[in-house]
Design a protein around this nucleic acid. Structure first.
Lengths: 134, 134
DNA sequence: CTAAACTCCGTACCTTGGTACGTAGTCAAG
DNA sequence: CTTGACTACGTACCAAGGTACGGAGTTTAG
């Protein structure tokens, strides 16, 4: 028994999900979204497609790439929580590493700006000299 | 009076700087690196070119884009410290913003992983459900 | 002297996540 | 029934920072 028989065209689907029509078609090409059967040349999408799109958007929002999202969705099919957790944990670690790198860069730049403010115009600009030869 | 008369070909220059030959040529096309006179069809590079390349690499290392690096180098020519400082300060701010965004994402993911570890296999995986409907 | 290695130059291609365009077919309103 | 809006499909294009390739000329080692 189907709960809902509602179907819509790609334009309605895209609008409801808040993405462009071309984006929907792009996800289909990437294998992230199933291509529904066409009735007479026109594809008919249902609420499951809409949920998939919303899932993709939320997953993107927490930093997953489309490739990782595709992986998550196959994990969903196999109901493997452990692998999904691993994927998320890995993502957390890579974000932490990235934050550390960025913090170092910001500190190096702050150091340069201070140095530059102290020195007069006669000396070469430390930001430009990039004196922090690592 | 020239301190050094040493000149080298593009291959040697690239190797010394730790970049590819194509990268050197790419920087020339982008206007980041001057094209030296050719002796008989072959360009002859000197230590100034090598220093430029090293400058570019260090500036990239602290997060400047090639476009910003080009700007920094024209500032170098005009010896305008204030503009260089502004450029660096802006870069610091954008890095800080990026760090905050990433920290939020990492927290959301940590929350999901904890939730997933608490629940049993019978419930749908929260990471996959992406229960954090924003 | 010849062959390998290097250079020059232009152009095409790669990644990621889409956007834009053109042609042809189709659906809905007036 | 025609016009406008929509759809399908294929292809090209965008940023950024390069990488790869093809063909022709040059230089250098053996």
């Amino acid at each position: 028994m189907k709960i809902s028989e509602q179907t819509f065209t790609i334009g309605k689907l895209a609008k409801d999900a808040g993405v462009g029509v071309e984006t929907v078609r792009y996800y289909q090409r990437r294998g992230l979204l199933a291509e529904p059967p066409a009735v007479s040349g026109y594809r008919r999408y249902d609420t499951l497609h809409l949920e998939r799109l919303n899932f993709i958007k939320r997953a993107q929002g927490v930093g997953f790439t489309l490739e990782e999202i595709a992986e998550l969705m196959t994990l969903n099919d196999t109901r493997d929580h452990r692998l999904a957790r691993n994927l998320a944990s890995e993502k957390i670690r890579s974000i932490e590493t990235r934050i550390e790198q960025l913090a170092k860069v910001a500190n190096a730049l702050r150091h340069l700006v201070r140095e530059c403010e102290c020195g007069g115009q006669e000396m070469p600009c430390p930001i430009i000299r990039m004196a922090l030869t690592p």
